[in-house]
Write a protein that binds this DNA or RNA. Structure first.
Lengths: 225, 225
DNA sequence: GCAAATTAATGATTTATTCAAG
DNA sequence: CTTGAATAAATCATTAATTTGC
């Protein structure tokens, strides 16, 4: 990992300046459109993705709060200390236990940002057409996490190979491994499926070509790279 | 808000069954590709997006843990209680204060899933070409949160209207509102910019057409719909 | 039975914590 | 040590179950 392109975003000073200024301006939790715009703008100064902007605000906000908390705690502690000293001077009495030196300061008050809001813009739930490019083109490039929506409309929803029941516990575990799956594993493993919980009638689920994968690496990829 | 399409995902029983079975199979934190595949598969049974799958696993895992914790806490409590009773019987002595009835059980041990892993698949950071559709087509449809990456390569990175300095503290606040921005606000507000922190040299930032927006709604959209 | 009122589940969001690159 | 990235925990908010009074 020396000459390999860095695995994480290295913000350019200009980008940091702009972000910082935006933060100072009050922006705390930009929504997706805002993130897009910011990203597009900052992209002029260097490679950047939406998630970088997202994370930056997230971390900056959090560490701001953290700093503030520490400062406050310190101040409070000092105040107490001073107060105690003063009280001791005033009433040098062993029963002056009014002030407790602990108080874990569990600050569990959730300091709602005056800026924060939920982005519930009521866009119609139309199911985005991927321009016929299929799923893969989105993964890891357009989407970073889960936001890769992929509606039901398009999605190279394969002509499912007729309703043969299949055990998801098995097939999905297979599908779930990340190695490029050889397609020699046929789609013909007949298995009962989805008969575990939920008292709904047993539905003949279909095995999709998309998920025909090898038996190796049954478990999820545990390595953290 | 009565006959409007539901704002949140209403999973179909089949989808739930499949998800549940996958969970039982050991899947805990599917990565983006997995989420894509799962989504594509579940889409057959009803409208669904990647984020729904993501959230489902997130919540399911969390609530599983939670349930387990509660169970354990209960058991522990009972054990203590029984032990105390027993001790009382054996040594009905007032000095039997070995057992403390508190112990807040702060279980701060981060129970790493044996399944969890970071999805660091090393796909090249190629900057996805949006097929010339620009930013908007992605927002709120392809992206749900931050994962809307949008590389620097494409992005209708406008021919910036020559380097006139502009105050981001102001312009960005304006840009940040969500209302469709009328373009009558010219791109010619000349302002000093980015001279706040960071001792890097002052760089003449450009005002991009993309961000010319109205002055109304200066603050972030706080309303929730 | 049946709808308003409560409560329980659970989808979605935000915040806190942790890991680890540099 | 700083900070980008990722995950877990806490919380919010909406929908479903359930109860309750009629």
């Amino acid at each position: 990992m020396s000459l390999v392109a860095s695995t994480r975003w290295c913000p350019m000073p200009e980008q940091l300046m702009i972000l910082e200024e935006m933060y100072q301006s009050g922006i705390r939790t930009p929504n997706d459109v805002q993130i897009q715009q910011i990203t597009a703008h900052l992209a002029f100064y260097g490679c950047i993705e939406g998630k970088n902007v997202f994370y930056w605000f997230q971390n900056h906000k959090a560490r701001d709060r953290q700093k503030l908390r520490k400062k406050l705690a310190k101040k409070l502690h000092q105040q107490k200390h001073h107060l105690q000293l003063r009280l001791q001077k005033i009433k040098p009495h062993p029963l002056n236990n009014i002030i407790d030196y602990q108080n874990p300061c569990h600050h569990h008050h959730r300091p709602y940002d005056h800026m924060s809001f939920a982005c519930c813009s009521q866009l119609s739930p139309i199911c985005l057409s991927h321009q016929g490019t299929g799923v893969e083109i989105q993964s890891k490039v357009v989407n970073e996490y889960y936001r890769n929506k992929s509606g039901p409309g398009d999605m190279l929803m394969p002509k499912q190979t007729t309703g043969q029941n299949s055990s998801y516990s098995q097939d999905w575990m297979m599908m779930m491994d990340m190695v490029p799956r050889p397609s020699y594993l046929s789609s013909s493993s007949p298995i009962p499926c989805c008969n575990m919980m939920m008292n709904s009638p047993k539905i003949p689920l279909k095995t999709l070509e998309l998920f025909q994968i090898s038996h190796i690496n049954l478990k999820q990829n545990n390595t953290k790279l």
